[in-house]
Amino acid sequence: MDMKRDYYEDIQLLDSKVLWFWFLMLVAALATFPFIAPTYYVYMANYMAINVIVTIGLNILVGYTGQISLGHAGFFAIGAYGTVMLMSLLHFPFLLALVAAALIAAFFGFILGLPALRLEGPYLAIATLGFGMAITQVIGRWELFGGRMGVEAPALSFFGIPVMTDLGRYFVTATIAFIMVLGARNLMKTRVGRAFIAIRDSDIAAETMGVNLVYYKTLAFAVSAFYTGIAGGLFAFLLGFISPSTFNFILSIYFLAFVIVGGLGSIFGSVMGGIVMTWLLLELDKIQELPLIGGMLISFSENFMTVAGLPNISSIIFGLIIVLLVIFEPLGLYGFWIRTKIYWKTWPF
């Protein structure tokens, strides 16, 4: 075991030269990746980065603060529509619009956090769910937002440099995601994060130790919504086109699934969860193209099910993953990771 000489070493991110090395390697790998990978994978990486941000945002609320939300698609929508609208109607520059939209989402998060102060379990679930539904309904019926038909994202430029391709978007998205991951990690290691966790583990003790429940519960909602809003804004440019039906109830559940798969209460887990689940989501869409299984599935569908309904198999697999993980590995991928690490540390015993 290494000895620590300084309290700072307890809280700093990279406490050894080796870790610094790997950190720089990671940055270098992330920077060179889009130049060598095919465009589709760059697109996928963008998608992953966005989902990582959402997953962390939702994890701050669900995993760290112990509140439930079935309405995060609503914040996602606010972020997406907010960014697009601020840019196309008020001609905000991209970054300002993105942050402003995320702040609007955070404000809505704060509003939603108010009733959440008194609600628990199923009651909170239904309140957040209602919020998510209401947001998409309002957006879908308001002409300003393009109604049911949706709106197109304006041309994206970053500090005057036009960003048109997946490669360009990659640098914007991945950089923002990277910063937000580090930010969340820092936040959770300091005073505010500890207050969140304290509320989750014992709100009564937290209160008597001076944690203002009203403030920190609403703050958790706001921070969570801010993250989700940022992701939503980036998502609008990934698709280039958004419509209300994108932000439905199922999307909220998918977000929850990301958090669960990654591991409740773990930033690193959320990163893994966002990446793995996005990959799965995109791969399952073309499951019939898989070499062996694809053919089997198609013939099975022809005989017993419908071929048109085959893509819905992703819903089945996602559902199974959620159910099985919650039952057998409540810590998700993070739990796997920890156990593998321990296994190799003590190997061969």
Partner: peptide, 26 residues
């Protein structure tokens, strides 16, 4: 705990929805 139970039933929801739309389409 309440969260994991809610998640399990949400999982049912997705599985059953998937089965029905696979079998009967939209």
């Amino acid at each position: 705990n309440i969260l994991s139970l809610i998640l399990i039933t949400l999982g049912f929801e997705m599985i059953l929805y998937g089965v029905a739309s696979w079998k009967w389409g939209a």
